[in-house]
Design a binder for these strands. Structure first.
Lengths: 350, 350
DNA sequence: ATCAGAATTGTCTTGCGTTGTCATTATAGC
DNA sequence: GCTATAATGACAACGCAAGACAATTCTGAT
């Protein structure tokens, strides 16, 4: 059975003393190697590393936390319902492991009134050396200020650049949204509707601005009556779809600020016996797994979440080590994924 | 900017010494109160708790890890691509927090040859006090044995009861699958196809057995030609759908071992201009978010993941404290969710 | 070869905040 | 008043980081 006393089985772990003995050096030197101290001869370093290898040495984290007054932990605060978080986690962890950092996660509700208290409690007393913030939590008023105030290094993963006060890894949401409009315009669409995302999500604004940019570039009229406000959910997509399908003349293409809402619009189209993309083109944003599984498959935009998270984590580890990154923000480009839900505009509308 | 030296800002945390002084007792007594030790007079306990409250005291985890030779951490090993893992995490964390436990996660690929090594490395030297295992990683040969061998208490979250060697929190997959067949039979279906899941996932077997049980109960013939083998993915669902739609006579209902495959079958039906559920009923399993977003919405089965994970974590914490749970396995019942993708069988087939 | 100065390594020490061990003191039962 | 037991305290130990400083080795210029 699984609850035997642990001590019985797990082999006694080697300590720094053992490594020092094995390598024929002092424990201070082992410590220097471990902490990337400068003045260590490569040959000595090699000897020590070899000894570590031979003994299967792994530093005792509680001890170094206690002695070093740092935690070797990175916090990740995220909105609990977020589905895309596993990608973020994977990316963060892949950067953490080689540096012997671990990850503590803190799911929460970004609408909870106690959010700031939760975050404060999560961070103090020094339970993490650094913090990664992701939307929509990072967009909540006071969150980034709180983190600054507590003096914890942090990196924000975001759709578009924020102001100048945070290290940021972001994508080019605005630019790529413009690209989507371009794609639709090339297919002959003129009446291109837009379904906006939840107003509290800053990332959603950038997508909207990109839409406006694209319309301007194509010199198309922006018709306010076919710009509708959604709330990021599938259900709100249905509402928006219904509203849009009532408009006369109907839009020939609908660009939604996320895939969930696009799926809602598709459902409405199905119910009205509109064939996609013959009668209506629909595009989304995010490339959620669902984008491939709806029928027809959704044209959308893919954010490279794992690489972003990985970069954010390694930047953060640099910050913790006082190696200030060269640039305040790093941009990783999103990608337009064309599938079957967009096609040539209906003839009569061309 | 966010990388100011942390020490500058975070208020100095009170230690046990401060609490002891404030309460007029020794630090050992404070420690006893903290660890729910028995022999403490209620009056003393109250005094200490009051002092903690007043000072905003929170225990220093690295210190108690080091001194106590335990980690107050719980490991969660999971397959990296798994989408349902956020629910599991939420459930585990909600049980951990009140007990002052933290969660370390270890995403991995359950097909990686190095899986066992990864797990061993994740666990030793005592980096976690206990482990929660979830499918499909928990089904990989040697994983549970390894965990036993290392002597780490563990709880397995699973579809159906395993053998007698693990503490388990499971659902009634088999029974509820039978219930799904019953549902279809009541709608008049006789030719009910089944799409099996990946053979390496034990949970998938139980769903199949439940299907067989249901067919037996309804005294329906089991036609091997409409039982096809999938691989859990959307793509394999498409393959299976194509194979099934070629059969003569066609099945009038398809029960899939998960929602992804069911979505694939739906896509095939759409392409062949079959209307769901008029011409074909389709059912899934898992109630993934996608189940509500496909068109038509999918009849499926919902596993109460968060409650399961929560129960598993509190059982595990009990095991760590040597409080052996009364029962080796706990069952939490799944729920049949009837939506629009199942309906009465076509007349000619009734 | 010689020597100054720099680079590298070692010794010794202290402290991080808690828990475990064992000794000591208070309390209750008779 | 004595014993058994409950309650509390004193002190070492956990494994490592980091500082102060001494000792050693290396480097390059003379």
């Amino acid at each position: 059975m699984s609850s035997a006393r642990p001590e019985a089985q797990i082999a006694q772990q080697a300590t720094m003393v053992d490594v020092a003995k094995q390598a024929g050096v002092s424990i201070k030197t082992v410590s220097r190697v471990l902490n990337r101290s400068q003045n260590v001869k490569p040959a000595t370093r090699a000897k020590v590393e070899q000894a570590m290898e031979a003994l299967g040495y792994r530093p005792n984290s509680p001890a170094r936390m206690l002695a070093g007054n740092r935690t070797y932990l990175i916090g990740l605060i995220y909105n609990a319902s977020s589905r895309y978080i596993t990608s973020i986690q994977n990316g963060v962890l892949s950067a953490c492991r080689p540096e012997h950092y671990d990850l503590l996660i803190h799911p929460c509700s970004y609408t909870a009134p106690s959010l700031l208290d939760q975050i404060r409690e999560f961070i103090t007393p020094p339970r993490v050396d650094g913090l990664i913030l992701v939307p929509p939590v990072s967009d909540v008023d006071g969150v980034r200020e709180l983190v600054h105030e507590l003096g914890i290094p942090s990196v924000v993963i975001s759709g578009e650049p924020l102001d100048e006060t945070d290290w940021t890894v972001c994508t080019n949401d605005r630019e790529i949204s413009k690209e989507m409009v371009r794609h639709l315009y090339r297919l002959g669409h003129q009446r291109i509707a837009f379904v906006r995302g939840h107003p509290a999500h800053k990332a959603m604004d950038d997508r909207y601005r990109g839409y406006l940019d694209g319309m301007a570039e194509a010199e198309l009229d922006v018709d306010e009556s076919i710009i509708v406000q959604g709330e990021n959910t599938f259900e709100s997509g249905i509402d928006c779809g219904i509203r849009l399908m009532r408009r006369q003349p109907r839009p020939t293409a609908v660009f939604c600020a996320n895939d969930h809402m696009a799926t809602g619009v598709i459902k409405v189209a199905h119910e009205r016996k509109l064939e996609i993309p013959r009668d209506l083109s629909v595009a989304g944003f995010d490339d959620m797994p669902i984008a491939e599984q709806v029928w027809p498959q959704l044209t959308t935009i893919r954010q490279p979440l794992e690489p972003m998270a990985q970069l954010a984590a390694s930047q953060l580890i640099g910050l913790i080590r006082d190696e200030t990154p060269k640039e305040l923000r790093r941009v990783i480009e999103s990608q337009l994924i064309v599938r079957q839900s967009t096609g040539p505009a209906p003839a009569e509308a061309a």
